[in-house]
């Protein structure tokens, strides 16, 4: 069984994001980029399936600008077998990405798509659900446990009230949550080896997908700033302030 793992290049999770002065977006120039943290968890899970002998091949795929190759190389260094880049300079929305991934899935015929539940830039939380819909496959979002059982998949999902267990037909699309696993760091030898692994480059046109944006960004602003607070010296002072100044208890 092939496992397809879509991954995204985003601003590193530890970078403090700055809004551009002209309000056209956030500053991406000279900012450290990295693989979206949820995508790392998806790659890790796929590589573990390969190591367990369940998956025959792990393919990482990314859509975006040429530099997304770096993110794909990271995925290869973590243990993926090969990579596909769908290169475009058009800013991609989740629906467009889902259409591109459907086209790749139609070609590669994987048994499982594993992807992050959310990218930490757009915070959309849509792509997995959308590609599942377009393929007409089953879906399990926010997975904290994934177990293959013959031609079925048992998934534990993190939901608002706690955990939910569902059983899916395969092929399936699974979006992963934080507790699924702890992603490995790529070792130096594996980073070197990754440079020689195959990376195929495609365009949206190759796949016959129209990626024209549907949503126009009018502006991007700073959020309202919180006023600086005060330090209190003791619990007694804190309780007094909460009762008599803030009046919240």
């Amino acid at each position: 069984m092939k496992v397809l793992v879509p991954i995204k290049r985003v601003i590193d999770a530890n970078v403090k994001v700055r809004v551009k002065a002209d309000e056209s977006g956030v500053e991406l120039t000279n900012v450290k980029m990295a693989m979206n943290p949820f995508c790392e968890i998806a790659v890790e899970e796929a590589v573990r399936l390969k190591e367990a002998g369940t998956a025959s091949e792990v393919i990482v795929v990314s859509a975006g600008i040429a530099q997304s190759q770096e993110t794909l190389r990271t995925g290869l260094a973590m243990g993926a077998d090969r990579a596909i880049l769908i290169q475009t300079d058009v800013p991609l929305e989740p629906l467009a990405v889902a259409k591109l991934l459907k086209a790749v899935a139609d070609k590669e015929e994987p048994g499982l798509l594993l992807l992050g539940k959310q990218a930490i830039d757009g915070d959309n939380n849509q792509t997995a659900q959308m590609i599942s819909a377009l393929l007409g496959w089953s879906q399990a979002t926010f997975a904290s446990k994934v177990a293959i059982d013959g031609d079925k998949l048992n998934v534990t999902r993190e939901v608002d009230g706690g955990l939910e267990n569902i059983n899916l037909n395969m092929p399936a699309v699974v979006s992963v949550d934080l507790r699924l696993n702890e992603p490995r760091y790529a070792s130096l030898p594996n980073i070197m080896k990754a440079k020689k692994k195959p990376l195929e480059s495609l365009t949206p046109e190759d796949l016959g997908v129209d990626v024209t944006p549907r949503v126009e960004t009018v502006k991007v602003c700073e959020p309202p700033a919180r006023k600086a607070g005060v330090k209190v010296a003791s619990v007694a002072e804190l309780v007094d302030k909460l009762k008599n100044e803030a009046k919240v208890i």
Binding site: V19, E216, V218, V220
Partner: peptide, 16 residues
Amino acid sequence: RPIYAGNAMATVRSTD
């Protein structure tokens, strides 16, 4: 809508 963990607020217009 908030983006980047609420570190920026995007105003967006849907054409659908």
